[in-house]
Design a protein around this nucleic acid. Structure first.
Lengths: 144, 144
DNA sequence: TATTGTTATACTCTATAACTATA
DNA sequence: TATAGTTATAGAGTATAACAATA
């Protein structure tokens, strides 16, 4: 198989694996009334603490408009709040509310369990290799 | 890092790599006036020949309603046509038209080149490994 | 001038399920 | 009854770019 065919094959397999895995994960998130983007933001704040909206977008690869859209929804649901930055008044932080923290305390463990089950076809070493390869491929593609 | 954290990490890296790579590939398809789903179907028929609509959906992981929607668009654009099966009149084939074949003759090489460039961070062996791991993970997740 | 974030528009795509025709 | 495909509906999400406020 040529290098080109190998690349096309990888593209197809990546697309399908992502679709199947994401589909299952999203069903899990929806049971808690959250979209994938909503869950990503909550999870990010849960693990990294409050963060400027722009950095949220950079991290989960969503446009500024998209961040506003999703953060609006999460604020309406009471899971996070916007906090303005006193030093630079252009900046707004997103920060989990108590309700947001409580939600993630409740749902994150089962989410993690679900993801672990979805990935359980791979051994520890295989996961480490996959992480390495996907990270390398993703970083490189970003510059194209 | 625990097995669970490793799985979560893999999920995040898979999501991001897919988003970046797909985003670039889609831009390329859009330059030819095609969505990702439209391109997938044309590419499938280009390489595998005419195929029942249901098999199209099974292959690219799209619902029957989604196949109808996308095949309608491709038929409007003149790139494929529906052909009914005489042996089993429930079945409809999708088949490329001459215009569809001509389009893919024209755009497929540069598409393949683009995908190869996007994947060029990985060596031949790394691509083979990534294909294996993603296929294994995807197949397993399908059963959950 | 550059950056942060919001707004507005329009559009594409998806999910869902009911439905028709055929086997 | 089961399968192939269509239709209809509604809604979610996205892209894009113009915009306001601040640095």
């Amino acid at each position: 198989m040529s290098e080109r065919d190998l690349s096309l094959k990888l593209f197809v397999v990546l697309t399908k694996a992502h679709k199947v895995i994401m589909d299952r994960a999203v069903k899990d998130m929806k049971r808690n009334g959250l979209s994938a983007a909503e869950f990503s933001i909550l999870e990010l704040l849960y693990h990294k603490g409050k963060m400027p909206l722009q950095r949220v977008g950079d991290t989960i690869l969503v446009s500024s408009g998209g961040v506003t859209y999703t953060v609006d929804k999460l604020e309406e649901k009471g899971y996070l709040c916007r906090v303005s930055c006193p030093e630079d008044r252009r900046i707004t932080y997103a920060e989990l509310t108590e309700a947001g923290k409580a939600l993630l305390d409740r749902i994150f463990p089962s989410h993690a369990k679900k993801i672990e089950a979805l990935m359980s076809a791979l051994t520890t070493e295989e996961k480490q290799i996959a992480i390495l390869l996907l990270k390398k491929a993703g970083l490189h593609a970003k510059e194209h």
